[in-house]
Design a protein around this nucleic acid. Structure first.
Length: 575
RNA sequence: GCGCCCAUAGCUCAGCUGGAUAGAGCAUCUGCCUUCUAAGCAGAGGGUCGGGGGUUCGAGUCCUCCUGGGCGCGCCA
């Protein structure tokens, strides 16, 4: 018995269709991949339904109801099926044997926390690069979305059978590092009473003063007479990177429980000369040239001068124009460095690359995808998942976040206020590309407006049931409990939803949408709460029914915990 | 001006890649605790799925135009 009823049923349908092709009823080259098996919204239509006949009708040049009727006859012999009906324009509705559902409960209990795990990933080496916040300051609340999404996505892909590698790219080499070094140094000078102003464009946040103090504690007046910006940069860059990464990791690792396999240093990459390697690779393919770009259309650039630069032929791969890979001063552009970095990922053997970015980087998507198309010859070697901006509100008033403007609400502060479970669930209970409002005032209130409590409460109730069972001295239910006693509407609805889990995992993984798991968990909790209110689980005078229901509760708990595990949300025993 | 993303109940959001009568939470109203945790359940009201065209057996979902919002637009990251 497979763990996924959908897959089993779909398999039987596909087999029948294969037979139809063999006997010449259907064309042998007919594509049957778009056929879906699903649960009808209206339970009176049956347990499952398929659109097979309607999908195939047109390409096969046949009447959908005719195909449906023929499928109905052929599938009647199935071990799964009790009754099949053809309805509407050609839906095929299945009523499954109760045995199938009872077996599913046993399957779940025997698989335990691995229920829902899949092999669709085929152990493919996938790298998920996420967070990658510049080491120039702490993580703000908006960054938390990408962090949580990336982490849950990794869990999800692992469960779906991918070989997942989590990486954080540290942009520890570019111009922003000069700015943070200069900022820290200026605060450092000020702390010694020097009369210096923080230059335009420097980071004004208070954390810079803290960093300056740390520097002072460590090195004393060692850097007091350094005035040359280049010297400041060289001297303070490693310190700034270390301090900022420690600040960031305190939030990510300690507060949010997110672990990376690797922190990739852009600075080290350049030291190894990988920029040249990547550019040579592209140059050899003829995708790099010296040229002059048209001035950009929208933004007026005052000091614009046509300039010959080293360009990548991005336009040839779908971008709006070609893109510079080196700056005038010879340093790599951000884009150029990113190309080198992604070439490095390919060299490490990753065949599926996923980047989690903020929507403010949307403009860079096309060029990087173009570069990967040029490097690999494949069109979709790289997936870039854009996190839409989070609009933060406090008491109905918008809070703008900008590190460079010094206006920061740190992710760690929010986590401390609302708790990590609520923080994660609030972000994961949304599709990644929906721009949504995170109301800090509301999030702080621990009321039931936060769906995480609803889901966790279901688990706490289940734990409570098992505690009561012990107190009442009701013996443990065994594997051979008579599950045919589970017949009422709430029980059936719950069991059917349990059957859905493996499918949800596969679909979510394929579409890179962990929010579906969050919604699944919520609905599972809902079905459980309904049953909880409709029936008692512990009936001392009817041990058979008690045992049947307890087996169902156990299976529900296994599934609920498995879904929460993907989300990285805890399942407390009591609330 | 151009590119990408979005628009679904009063509010916050789902909608399983084109399926049957569009869903949930919050808010409003009505019921349910001497019985396993009421952070719960049952029910009611609330929608021309931003608008117009198109594709087909069938569109919230796909194509096109329009309106409104977000993000971005040589050598910032």
């Amino acid at each position: 018995m497979k763990q996924d009823i959908y897959a089993s049923l779909n398999g039987e349908i596909q087999n029948v269709l294969k037979d139809f092709k063999a006997e010449g009823y259907l064309p042998s080259d007919l594509d049957t991949s778009s056929i879906v098996v699903e649960q009808p919204k209206d339970p009176s239509h049956g347990d499952f339904a398929t659109n097979a006949a309607m999908v195939l009708a047109k390409p096969a040049c046949k009447n959908p109801r005719e195909i449906a009727t023929k499928l109905q006859e052929a599938l009647q012999a199935s071990d799964l099926v009790e009754q099949i009906d053809v309805a509407g324009p050609g839906f095929i509705n299945f009523k499954l044997k109760p045995q199938v559902f009872h077996d599913q409960i046993r399957t779940i209990l025997s698989q335990g926390s691995s229920y829902g795990s899949s092999k669709v990933g085929g152990d493919e080496k996938v790298m998920v690069e996420f967070v990658s916040v510049n080491p120039t300051g702490p993580l703000h609340a908006g960054h938390g979305r990408g962090a949580v999404y990336g982490d849950a996505l990794c869990n999800l892909l692992s469960k779906a059978g991918y070989d997942v590698y989590r990486e954080y790219l540290m942009n520890d080499a570019g111009g922003q590092m000069r700015v943070i070094a200069k900022s820290v140094h200026t605060r450092y000078l000020q702390s010694y009473g020097k009369d210096v102003e923080l230059p335009q464009g420097c980071y004004p946040g208070d954390y810079v003063k803290d960093m300056a103090q740390t520097l002072k504690d460590r090195d004393g007046d060692k850097w007091l007479n350094v005035t040359d910006d280049e010297e400041i940069f060289n001297a303070l860059r490693p310190f700034c990177v270390a301090e900022c990464m420690s600040m960031i990791n305190k939030t990510i690792v300690d507060d949010m429980g997110i672990d990376f396999h690797n922190y990739f240093s852009e600075f080290d990459m350049h030291a190894r000369g990988e920029m040249d390697v990547a550019m040579k690779k592209l140059r050899d393919k003829g995708y790099i040239y010296e040229g002059v770009l048209e001035p950009p259309k929208g933004k007026v650039i005052e000091d614009y001068e046509p300039e010959e630069m080293t360009l990548f032929k991005a336009e040839q791969f779908g971008d709006d124009c070609d893109r510079p890979v080196y700056k005038k001063n010879g340093e790599p552009t951000y884009f150029g460095a990113d190309v080198a970095y992604h070439n490095n990922k390919l060299d490490r053997g990753f065949t599926k690359l996923i980047n989690v970015w903020g929507a403010d980087h949307a403009g860079a998507v096309k060029r990087l995808k173009a570069a990967l198309a040029a490097l690999t010859g494949q069109k979709d070697a790289l997936h870039i998942q854009l996190m839409q901006m989070v609009k933060l509100e406090k008491n109905g008033e918008e809070v703008k976040l900008s590190k460079r403007a010094g206006n920061i609400i740190e992710a760690s502060d929010v986590v401390k206020e609302v708790g990590i479970d609520a923080f994660r669930f609030l972000y994961l209970y949304r599709k990644h590309d929906s721009q949504f409002v995170f109301d800090l005032a509301k999030a702080v209130e621990k009321n039931n407006e936060n769906p995480v409590f609803y889901v966790q409460y279901a688990n706490a109730r289940m734990c409570s049931v098992f505690r009561q069972q012990k107190e009442l001295n009701i013996p443990e239910a065994s594997d051979d409990a008579d599950l045919s006693l589970l017949t009422n509407d709430e029980e059936i609805a719950l069991i059917k939803h349990l059957c859905l889990f493996p499918l949800v995992i596969e679909k979510s993984a394929q579409s890179l949408e962990p929010h579906r798991v969050a919604f699944y968990a919520h609905e599972l909790a809902s079905k459980f709460h309904s049953l909880y209110n409709a029936e008692k689980f512990l009936i001392p005078e009817d041990v058979a029914t008690t045992h049947a229901r307890l087996q169902l509760v156990k299976a529900t708990q296994v599934t609920l915990k498995a879904s929460l595990e993907v989300l990285g949300v805890s399942a407390p025993d009591r609330m």
